[in-house]
Write a protein that binds this DNA or RNA. Structure first.
Lengths: 230, 230
DNA sequence: GCTGTTGCTAAGCGCGTGCTCAGGGCCCCG
DNA sequence: CGGGGCCCTGAGCACGCGCTTAGCAACAGC
């Protein structure tokens, strides 16, 4: 991990018109391989991009269909409503990030190693898949009550993975924390927020961001050295 | 600060219909004392509540006017557009949180004390004023390009305050960080995210949240103890 | 060649949106 | 009582929204 690199903050317009980088688009498409007919997948990818740029409510079905190279009516052959698109995106995104987190948390090593791996993987995903992650993290409130409840269950399981890791480290005597639940939530906050500020081509690669956040997570749970406070 | 309190996570519907707590409503009103005619202030407070619950694009001008006890047309006597309401909210909110942060950062003590005070105050504000903060942090993209640029300038100044504090601590030999800018951003991420998950009446008071995050911020910058990693 | 199925489009319906405008009640000054 | 300024309302306009419907081209099976 490089130290103290210089560079711009790069806070640019989230809903701007800058073209999507090729790297970005490629990474985005790969995650949706499981979605069945080709036209349905193209619509889903178009919806992810549109929702990420403008938000769910500011995106029109005409915009989504246009990005997918289709007429507005084509959308309704593959999806019942605009909300169903959001639900599918949210579902697949949450399941993917949860499984990444679980795999890392179930790896080899002690609590420190596994916590670092989990936070690193979760943070890295939010950078690499920042377009999807933005929709997944910040458009929840547009879901129908039923779909919202379903997604919240996935989120609770995500929180539980990190919380369990922290508690395990405390029991093993490796970690010292004031509040395991709140500490776990703070780690998730760090990673989620990557989706808000990350821009491709910035100072840091997704991998560097993951590594940096893994280090921060360890600092949060390891007992601090005696400080210079008076 | 209490350790390891038990309780529910409390992730409830952001756009739900639960009535606003009295404590909440009171705290919200106090911050807008500077807004001039009484009717304009009532409209602003109504807009904050509506935007926080449903988001800018899902909120109608009829809804805002209704909450303020007025007809839809009354809104346009005090504000040119719906976007102007969002701009005023964003402006006042950013200025308020920036000035809180600056006051704490300019206080007495060494870098550790001032960093803890700054992060504590900033985190606490995002809990106390979570309704305003939600609009301020998550509805930026609905601003017009001019207004957006103005607000981004305020945000950069906010980032600079924390970054300068971290760099000062590094120069003083109190802190050890891999990347001062990224560390400062992480601290802000923690605090901003409070606006997303905080619910009044939860496990923690705003003050406890601020204190907890101040402690986390110090852990992030103080060199970690030798770890148990192999 | 005929029919059924699949995947799409052109056209458009009904509605709710942001916003406008003519006018009316109320208060202060004479 | 008259006149003017300040707030506010009732009614409604133009538009763009989510979504529907009728129909068409392509193709497979027989």
């Amino acid at each position: 991990m490089a130290a103290q690199a210089s560079g711009r903050t790069g806070e640019t317009r989230p809903g701007g018109e800058e073209p999507v980088a090729a790297e970005d688009r490629h990474a985005g498409c790969d995650s949706w391989r499981s979605v069945a007919p080709d036209a349905a997948r193209r619509l889903l990818i178009a919806a992810v991009e549109a929702f990420a740029e403008r938000g769910f409510h500011a995106t029109t079905t005409r915009d989504i269909a246009g990005r997918a190279g289709m007429s507005p009516a084509a959308l309704y052959i593959h999806y019942k409503t605009k909300e169903e698109l959001l639900h599918r995106i949210s579902q697949v995104g949450h399941e993917r990030s949860l499984s990444l987190l679980r795999d890392a948390a179930a790896g080899r090593g002690g609590p420190s190693d596994r916590l670092a791996a989990a936070v690193g993987a979760f943070g890295r995903w939010h950078a690499e898949q920042h377009t999807t992650a933005r929709v997944v993290q910040y458009e929840l409130s547009a879901l129908s009550p039923d779909h919202y409840a379903e997604i919240v269950a996935l989120r609770r399981r995500t929180e539980a993975v990190v919380r369990d890791l922290v508690e395990e480290g405390v029991r093993a005597g490796e970690f010292e924390v004031l509040d395991a639940r709140a500490t776990a939530l703070a780690m998730l906050s760090l990673c989620l927020d990557v989706a808000r500020w990350y821009r491709p081509g910035g100072r840091r690669t997704p991998e560097e961001i993951g590594d940096f956040y893994a280090d921060l997570a360890l600092r949060m749970v390891l007992a601090p050295r005696a400080t210079g406070r008076h």
